[in-house]
Structures are given as structure tokens and as C-alpha cells.
Simulated assay, not measured.
Amino acid sequence: MKRLVKHVPGFSKTTLRFADYESGIESAVARARKQNGEPGAEHGGNPSTGVWVLVEKIN
């Protein structure tokens, strides 16, 4: 929690602001794509790691 507050001033678990994270979406999707490979391959592992595909579609 202390490290998060350091990087996201005003952080609150109960009041998340999209604007605090918006600038990092593209790099987060790129890291997830690199780590997880192509969409649909998640069935062999953790399917929640494929959420980057959804984020990419709605972004």
C-alpha cells in the first residue's frame, strides 16, 4: 500500500480514478501480450490473464 501511494498520490481502495491509470494502459497491454502470447491460448493456464484482450478492444 505504501508503494502504491508513492506512485499514485491520493490513492484510495474505495475510490479508484481511471485517470490515475489511463496513461499506462498501452504499456500494460503490451507487457501482458508479450507474457501471454496470442488470444485464446489462456486455456492452458490462468484465463484471467487474458483480460488484456478485453482492455485492448475497449480502449
Rank of each mutant, 00 (worst) to 15 (best):
G10P: 02
G10I: 05
F11P: 04
F11T: 06
S12V: 02
S12F: 05
S12A: 07
S12C: 05
K13W: 14
K13P: 04
K13C: 00
T14Q: 13
T14V: 05
T14I: 04
T15K: 15
T15H: 15
T15C: 03
T15Q: 14
T15P: 00
L16P: 00
L16W: 03
L16H: 00
R17N: 09
R17M: 02
F18T: 12
F18W: 15
A19H: 12
A19R: 11
D20W: 12
D20P: 08
D20S: 13
Y21P: 07
Y21E: 11
Y21S: 06
E22D: 05
E22K: 10
S23Y: 02
G24R: 14
G24V: 11
G24N: 12
G24W: 09
I25F: 07
I25Y: 05
E26W: 13
E26F: 13
E26Y: 14
E26N: 13
E26D: 14
S27A: 09
S27Y: 03
S27L: 09
S27R: 10
V29I: 15
A30R: 14
A30E: 10
A30M: 12
A30P: 05
A30V: 09
A30C: 08
R31I: 07
R31Y: 06
R31S: 04
R31Q: 11
R33G: 06
K34L: 08
K34C: 03
K34Q: 09
Q35W: 01
Q35F: 04
Q35M: 08
N36W: 02
N36Y: 07
N36G: 08
N36R: 01
N36C: 12
G37V: 00
G37L: 02
G37N: 01
E38C: 09
E38R: 06
P39E: 04
P39H: 03
P39M: 06
G40C: 07
G40Y: 10
A41C: 11
A41K: 08
E42I: 04
E42K: 08
E42R: 08
H43W: 15
H43S: 14
H43R: 15
H43D: 14
G44W: 08
G44V: 11
G45S: 13
G45C: 05
G45V: 05
N46R: 14
N46T: 15
P47N: 12
P47L: 12
P47V: 13
S48M: 14
T49P: 04
T49W: 07
G50P: 05
G50D: 03
G50T: 02
G50M: 02
V51I: 10
V51T: 05
V51W: 01
V51H: 00
V51L: 05
W52S: 00
W52T: 03
W52G: 00
W52H: 03
W52I: 07
V53I: 10
V53P: 01
V53S: 05
L54T: 12
L54R: 14
L54M: 12
V55I: 15
V55Q: 02
V55T: 10
